[in-house]
Design a protein around this nucleic acid. Sequence first.
DNA 1: ATTATTAATGTAAGCGCTTACATTAATCGG
DNA 2: CCGATTAATGTAAGCGCTTACATTAATAAT
Lengths: 339, 339
Amino acid sequence: MPETETAPTLDDVALAARVSTATVSRCINDPKKVSQKTRDRVEAAIDKLGYTPNFAARSMAAKRTFTIGAIIPTMENAIFARGIQAFQEELYQHGYTLLISSSGYKAEAEKEQIKTLVARGADALLLIGHDRDPAIYDYLERQRVPTLVAWSYDETAQTPSIGFDNRTAMRALAETVIAKGHTSIAMISGISQQNDRARLRIEGVKDAMLARGLDPDTLDPIEVPYNVNDGASAFVTLMSRHPRPSIVMCGNDVLAVGALRGAAELGLNVPEDISITGYDDLELAQVVSPALTTVRVPHREMGRNAACEIVDMIEKKRKGVSQKLKATVVERASVAQVQ
Amino acid sequence: MPETETAPTLDDVALAARVSTATVSRCINDPKKVSQKTRDRVEAAIDKLGYTPNFAARSMAAKRTFTIGAIIPTMENAIFARGIQAFQEELYQHGYTLLISSSGYKAEAEKEQIKTLVARGADALLLIGHDRDPAIYDYLERQRVPTLVAWSYDETAQTPSIGFDNRTAMRALAETVIAKGHTSIAMISGISQQNDRARLRIEGVKDAMLARGLDPDTLDPIEVPYNVNDGASAFVTLMSRHPRPSIVMCGNDVLAVGALRGAAELGLNVPEDISITGYDDLELAQVVSPALTTVRVPHREMGRNAACEIVDMIEKKRKGVSQKLKATVVERASVAQVQ
DNA sequence: ATTATTAATGTAAGCGCTTACATTAATCGG
DNA sequence: CCGATTAATGTAAGCGCTTACATTAATAAT
């Protein structure tokens, strides 16, 4: 019995199986290169000793970590959870581990986390949205770290992306709403600075207004952080505008839920007194009452596809190819027909 | 200009600063050991080259990774998100990185992920709840990986834990409910197999029933996975029981929201026709209507404290000390006064 | 049987750090 | 001013793997 129980190493296994360390290594990484007979011996030794390869040693020698880093703006609400979970599951299938950080929507924090992840030898990075300091992209390029953007789609961007066209999807929602007779539209948006999703959703609403003969300048969105409380207070502010809007379109479902709460506080009925829309189709959207009219985003599909794409980028050493997923408007009870 | 732009190493820095690698290393890890003058030189070199230490090399040499692993049952809904986010933030303050996996409530997956995390050299592990194969605890002990349990408190357990007493908290909620005149109680629980939180919450309800002269055997909880749909269908099942319960207590808020939806499907008004309670006090609970009577859990505090404790365990090489946080019942609109 | 070819295995050189120990420089008491 | 301390720096041995290359064993071709 060993007095200082220390984890067994490759050497221990090699010794026990009476082969060289190279053979053990091959058994693990490329089994077909070793004969059945010795493979059996080695595997027996591995089992007996309970050997697990040391990750740091392995990644130093191989210059590969089988780790992929992802930086998401927040874990607090469900916005990214489903997609990231799917991303992780798919990655796992391919033998990769996911390292997640959250930046709290702060560009500086994100920058730092990117460096940390790179120092940790992430084989690739998943980032949310395109908007960030170009220096970051330069850095990533110089470090040769493949990078993929998700939750956003932009074919003109340098960095490949898998996501949906936020602008077009939001425009479709806005057109639906306008078709229902709403002409006085207000909007609660997330902070659009450094956030293309937020920015493009605003543009989408304006596109629709323009197309339908409404003046986009009257939209004048309020920008607040994505949480229920801020959504609620923004809603209250909006309700004091003159003329009072007939609908409040929100940058996402969390904000819309906040708006719903604001309406409740004001004693307003939704959708009779005021209509509200969201974006994302979180579980939240169906659970709240009235259920939210919103845009459904294929979270899981996006996560899965991003995982496959990023693994391919790494293993085939090729540039990523962007993928546009369709986001569809789903109509529920939070929008009234006007007149 | 280097043709193959490869990340600068310690050697490069040492060369540029005209010192040995040891000095550079000390500059980074223990600056007070080197004189101001050379420190300045080294730091200048680091800046100039844009050097970041290689994580794998560092952790191999130091046998420390400054990484802490956490395995949570799921990321899909908000149950663990807030607490884990706080955990991560606090860890970050102390210079540690968090590696998260989710097991999907599957014991086998959890076991495998624990091994992965250990192989990756996690300095410590955060696990949710106490219930798991004892072999896992043995393994962790043998590998000398400090382990802390969260979301659960059990002073009798071998492994230290930071959490709340699920049983007592649920009992308090049940007593509140009984005090309001409910005598026919039904329950939708999470799967209690390998899940002490679920198990103890059931026990808590039974404790209250016993204490108030109700027969605990009539509770007969339905166990389903923690998601809205399963909650809804369990609710429907429960409503066909005779006699029909006057209240459905749920194992958590997600299930309670499902129950709410089930009630809506059945055309039942909450709380007039049927009362419902949750557990966790997720944001969800306040946002749904009627707002849920539930148990508030100090998620962020738990995450923060767990981080401090686990860092201490690592750095002071001492056993963890358990911490019991108070969970309080919060009454909202989903429970009616009977009679 | 003999050589050419291929498959299986072994040898050993790193990968980029940390750190025990050795060496040299600076400081100090008498 | 000198030996004794103490502070600052350097030297070099690993940490546990992978993998290019060398060697040996097995198989095929002649």
